[in-house]
Design a protein around this nucleic acid. Structure first.
Lengths: 261, 261
DNA sequence: GCATATGGTTCAATATTTGAACCCATGCTT
DNA sequence: AAGCATGGGTTCAAATATTGAACCATATGC
């Protein structure tokens, strides 16, 4: 792997830690030599991507990403565009709705609107969404080119709950259904007692960039309800895509999405 | 320079562009070979730090920084802590108040509260603040260790307006005054007709991390008014520092700050 | 006061980066 | 339609930066 890649992976590792970490821990977690980890950290610090607490000597994420994020969001306000739709959907569905974005070869939650109900599904911003075990992951993957699907399914698939599907062949079946339907359904794959539906937000080329998902307690989602949620996530995802990328519609399998949306 | 440094500089360059740029332009702006620039971009893209528009093939900042920024702000909410103080100060002073943060060896504006008046100073979020020509820059530098001051003053200093001070010896005098006073004053150094005062927000070790500044049209700031503004920025900067870092006061020259604040 | 742990540094061996030259489209000009 | 210019992207030997075992320094616990 390139040095840059290793350094960015280190940054990623640091960002995933619950708290600030010391040099030795970081090196171990990244599988790097202490000297190497240190040089990376120094270099990253120079550019503001990490900072070292002068007292504890531990490292944390720096302020450079904040600057870049502001620029990105100013020029390309995905959240600003998407959040109103997520809010509206949360209100309409009275269930927890979350928005994910593909970044750095993973799908991560970037916004959540909680259900107003007492009994609800709680999702944390920042949560990573495994492709095989979440509605968002399946919706994302379903609309990816075959080689990306192959790559995702050839990795080891964790059995998160007793209901998680880890058989690639079965998963491929789900992906086909997802494409046909326009949205994905996940039965307790990531959390027992929870069902989700998700639809991809797609770039003009057709490639997904993220997903809209509704997560509800199983007791409130019968077959008809699920179909209704599905229609809603598809509508929201398409609306976001349209607003984000202008009036252009995604090419390729557009018809399939519209059909069900 | 290390590869990582070069790649992060490239990222920085891309972030400074007004619009998305092509490979050749980026390579030229960074002084890199096209092949090198490309490998960097590919690597950065893998990790979500840039993305390439599939249609125009141009590059822009990706979504990874947004993720990191959220984590940083969640764990270390500088803006969240500071903004209320900036708002309060803007209201109290009825002038434009802005907040800057040191990141990647530069001071940049991260929040602005505009004056409610029609005749006011406008500052853009993201603006870089030269150390020698802005109140924030001087306030920051004044409380830095000598070697950082030397480094900053040994670089070529741009004469931004006809009033900009570019003589390192004179600037050192201003820095001494700033330390003695607890806040800096900038007379038209970055924009004719504008005076500013600024005070540093400092980490527990005493090193500045950013500044609070008031910028006012000269006609509204006489000597007494300027001292009042100065006292206000010092109070705000100290309050932010205290809230941000807990109850600890910055070590070292604390007394000087408190004396004037 | 010894043992252990962590942050940090060094330098020869090694793997990665580099860039001139190249290819391939696209679009403009003659 | 051939010629030319421009921009994205690629190749591979030469140049250079990266690597990591061993090292030092300091702090904490026993």
């Amino acid at each position: 792997m390139s040095t840059i890649g290793k350094a960015l992976s280190l940054l990623d590792t640091v960002s995933r830690l619950d708290k600030e970490a010391g040099l030795t821990d970081i090196a171990r977690l990244c599988g790097l030599d202490k000297a190497t980890a240190r040089r990376f950290l120094v270099e990253l610090e120079k550019h503001g991507f990490v900072e070292q607490d002068p007292e504890t000597r531990r490292y944390r994420i720096g302020s450079a990403p904040v600057r870049l994020a502001r620029i990105r969001e100013a020029r390309y306000p995905f959240l600003r565009v998407a959040v109103p739709f997520i809010k509206a959907l949360a209100e309409a569905s009275t269930e927890t709705v979350h928005l994910s974005e593909f970044s750095g070869s993973r799908l991560s939650t970037i916004h959540v609107e909680d259900s107003p109900r007492a009994h609800r599904v709680n999702v944390e911003v920042g949560t990573l969404l495994p492709f095989h075990a979440t509605a968002s992951g399946l919706a994302y993957l379903a609309f990816c080119p075959p080689d990306e699907i192959d790559a995702a399914l050839s990795k080891p698939l964790e059995r998160v709950t007793e209901y998680t599907i880890v058989d690639p062949a079965v998963l491929r079946g789900l992906l086909d259904e997802t494409v046909a339907r326009g949205f994905s359904i996940n039965h307790q794959g990531i959390e027992a007692g929870v069902v989700s539906t998700a639809a991809p937000i797609r770039a003009p080329g057709g490639h997904p960039i993220g997903c809209v998902a509704i997560a509800a307690p199983m007791v409130r989602a019968d077959q008809a309800g699920l179909m209704e949620f599905g229609a809603q996530v598809v509508a929201a995802a398409n609306a976001i895509s349209e607003k984000y990328y202008g009036s252009e519609r995604p090419a390729g399998t557009t018809a399939q999405i519209r059909r069900t949306g």
